[in-house]
Simulated scan of single mutants.
Amino acid sequence: MKSENATPTSEFVLRLSATRRGARLARLLAVQQLHEWGVPDPDAAELVVAELACNAATHGRVPGRDFEVRMERGEDHVRIEVSDTRGEREPEPVAVPDEGGYGLLLVSALATAWGVKARCVGKTVWATVPIRRSGRTGCFRRAVR
C-alpha cells in the first residue's frame, strides 16, 4: 500500500462561475483555506475576497466566462488576486458612495496596497492584506487593584 502525503502549499487557486453563487462560494472556500493556513484572524482577508469576488461577478461578468481567485500566503500577509474577463471595466473607488461603491473603500482600508493589472483577456484586481497576530489590537482592559 502506497502512502501519499499532501504537500503544504502557500498558494490557493480557484475558478468559479461569474454569478452571485460563485462569489459566495469564493468567500467560503477562501475562508476555509485561510483557516487551513493557520491565519489567526482572517476577517480582513475574508472581506477583501468577498468584495473582489462580488465585483468580478457583478461588474466583470461576461456570460459563459468564469472568474478566478488566487491567494498566496506570505509570512506576514496574504496576497489576494481576483481575475475576470472584462478588461475595459477597471474598478474606480468613488469619493462619495451612493447606494453602492463602498467596496473599494473597504478594500483600501483593509489592505496595505491594492491595484489593477491587465491580462491577455481581462484584468486582475489584487490586494495585499496584512496578517494580524492573535488577539485584537486596540482593545485591552486595565487591571484595577
Score class of each variant (00 low, 15 high):
Met1Val: 14
Lys2Met: 13
Ser3Met: 11
Ser3Asn: 11
Ser3Val: 15
Asn5Glu: 15
Asn5Met: 15
Ala6Gln: 12
Ala6Ser: 12
Ser10Trp: 12
Glu11Ala: 11
Phe12Met: 10
Phe12Val: 07
Val13Gln: 15
Leu16Glu: 12
Leu16Met: 08
Ser17Phe: 08
Ser17Gln: 15
Thr19Asn: 08
Arg20His: 11
Gly22Lys: 05
Gly22Ile: 07
Gly22Ala: 08
Leu25Thr: 13
Ala26Asn: 06
Arg27Tyr: 06
Arg27Pro: 05
Leu28Ala: 11
Leu28Asn: 10
Gln33Phe: 10
Gln33Met: 12
His35Gln: 15
Trp37Glu: 14
Gly38Asn: 11
Val39Cys: 07
Asp41Cys: 14
Pro42Trp: 09
Pro42Thr: 11
Asp43Trp: 08
Ala44Trp: 04
Ala45Phe: 04
Glu46Thr: 08
Glu46Ser: 12
Val48Gln: 01
Ala50Cys: 05
Ala50Asn: 04
Ala50Phe: 03
Ala53Asn: 04
Ala53Glu: 03
Ala53Gln: 05
Cys54Met: 13
Cys54Glu: 15
Cys54Ser: 15
Cys54Gly: 14
Thr58Cys: 03
Gly60Lys: 00
Arg61His: 04
Asp66Ala: 13
Asp66Ser: 12
Phe67Arg: 04
Glu68Val: 06
Val69Phe: 03
Arg70Ile: 09
Arg70Gly: 11
Met71Ser: 07
Met71Val: 10
Glu72Lys: 10
Gly74Met: 10
Glu75Ile: 02
Glu75Cys: 01
Ile80Glu: 00
Val82Asp: 06
Val82Ser: 06
Gly87Pro: 02
Pro91Ala: 01
Ala95Phe: 07
Val96Ile: 12
Asp98Asn: 09
Gly100Trp: 07
Gly103Ile: 05
Leu104Pro: 01
Leu106Met: 10
Ser108Trp: 00
Leu110His: 02
Trp114Phe: 02
Ala118Asn: 08
Cys120Asp: 12
Cys120Gln: 10
Val121Cys: 09
Lys123Ile: 08
Thr124Glu: 05
Thr124Ser: 07
Val125Gly: 02
Trp126Cys: 03
Pro130Trp: 12
Ile131Trp: 05
Arg132Gly: 13
Arg132Gln: 13
Arg133Glu: 14
Ser134Val: 14
Ser134Gln: 15
Gly135Thr: 07
Arg136Gly: 13
Phe140Ile: 12
Val144Arg: 11
Arg145Asp: 06
